[in-house]
Design a protein around this nucleic acid. Structure first.
Length: 403
DNA sequence: AAGCAGAGGTAAGGTCTC
DNA sequence: CCAAGAGACCTTACCTCT
């Protein structure tokens, strides 16, 4: 008999904001939001750079009501959430809800530093760990000594304590029979909580939840389900799988049925390879391909160069280069092209991406431009992966044989 | 002559996540 | 005049080859 699988999902509490509160403890308990579009915030903060961060008076911090720009909120402290402010909300909208909130820019270097720190702390205790972005991981408790005690609660507490001692940050942990349920469980007791879910809890703890709580059912699927009068996971579980397949397609429909019954056998993957890398930027104002040609060209070149640097720094080469643009009306267009050779330099990326750009309509103004590299290989492995498919000459022969 | 079947690649768009 | 950036994965369509 194999041991019963116990999988944990760990989520850092208001991660980006909590990292800033370590630096500015005087802001503890206040409404603070971390925001993406930063220029204004950076200016306001750099007005007081010489003092030690923790001695900057609260009154000197920039406020949401003074924010100008097109950014969105990345994270809000729990105090700010009281006002209805939350992740992915436009800054301007948030300013109306909570004008007195303090705004801080994302410090990616600092966030990455704490990300590495909390993950390495976990890995020392439980080595089978899967990265899921900067502030989240799955952990396989199954074979960790003590991982089964109280359904995983003992180990979860130990990990919480170790992370807090190393970083001063709190997290929430859910432990369940699989990743799907663990992910939902980690939401049950936020912040700084632990939640244990057993298979028998499906009906009482999972089925009453809205379908949107399932990781993978987003706004679109949620809306479609609502129109079909399916709101809770229990209602989803009660549907005929074939009916779900008819409505949502073979793959999604079957998947919905499985997850509604709490079934998920995905393993905790300790290694992963990137599939694509990209760079994109939203302009300060919408730009026109003709009227703002020079400005657009500079941004385009810069994106290509940065993407090339990203590839080289991480040791990858790419065979497919693509562009993405968002028009002023938010419609998105993408184009890409696969070439024979693997590349990673900004100039070549710019050349291929430029060809892609010629294939889209540029009559409307643009608000975003992006460049993407995919079909990746590790630099040095290209020769192996680059084995070409049968060429045109052979194709002719094959066709002759057919006829 | 035309259609089918299955695998695999390419392209475009869409959804979802943090 | 709102609505980021980066990445994974899915669907659909089309094409080539066997």
């Amino acid at each position: 008999m194999p041991p019963i699988r116990r999988i944990a999902h760990l989520d850092m509490d208001a991660f980006f904001a909590s990292v800033e509160l370590l630096r500015y403890p005087q802001l503890k308990g206040l409404a603070v939001v971390i925001g993406g579009g930063r220029r204004k915030v950076d200016e306001a903060l750099s007005a007081v750079p010489e003092r030690q961060p923790r001695f900057i008076p609260v009154a000197d911090f920039p406020l949401l009501k003074d924010y100008v720009g097109r950014g969105v909120i990345t994270t809000a402290t729990y105090a700010a959430r009281q006002f209805g402010v939350g992740s992915a909300m436009g800054m301007m909208k948030a300013a109306k809800l909570c004008p007195q909130a303090i705004v801080l820019p994302v410090d990616f270097d600092e966030v990455r530093r704490f990300s590495r720190l909390f993950k390495s702390t976990i890995a020392e205790i439980a080595p089978v760990m899967q990265d899921r972005g900067v502030d989240e991981v799955y952990i396989d408790f199954t074979d960790v000594p003590g991982g089964q005690r109280e359904g995983g609660r003992v180990l979860a507490r130990l990990i919480q304590k170790a992370i807090f001692e190393k970083t001063g940050l709190t997290c929430s942990i859910g432990v369940a029979p699989n990743k799907l349920l663990a992910k939902m469980a980690s939401e049950f007791n936020k912040p700084n909580g632990i939640s244990i879910v057993y298979e028998e809890d499906l009906e009482t703890k999972i089925w009453p939840l809205n379908v949107r709580k399932i990781n993978g059912i987003g706004p679109k699927a949620g809306e479609k389900l609502a129109k079909l009068h399916i709101h809770t996971i229990g209602e989803l579980a009660a549907q005929d799988p074939q009916w779900l397949i008819d409505n949502f397609g073979k793959s999604s429909g079957a998947w919905m049925h499985e997850v509604a019954w709490g079934r998920d056998d995905r393993p905790v993957e300790t290694h992963s390879e990137p599939v694509s890398m990209s760079r994109e930027t939203t302009f300060g104002r919408d730009l026109h391909a003709v009227r703002d040609k020079a400005e657009l060209g500079e941004i385009f070149t810069s994106l290509c160069e940065k993407l090339g640097e990203d590839l080289q720094r991480k040791g990858y080469v790419a065979k497919t280069i693509g562009i993405k643009l968002r028009y002023d009306d938010f419609r998105i267009a993408t184009r890409d092209q696969t070439i024979q050779a693997y590349i990673a330099d900004g100039q070549t990326i710019r050349k291929i991406a430029g060809q892609c750009l010629k294939r889209v309509a540029l009559d409307r103004r643009l608000r975003l431009l992006g460049v993407r590299a995919s079909t990746l290989a590790r630099a040095g492995d290209e020769a192996v992966s680059a084995a070409s498919p049968p060429q045109a000459a052979e194709a002719v022969v094959a066709t002759d044989q057919l006829f």
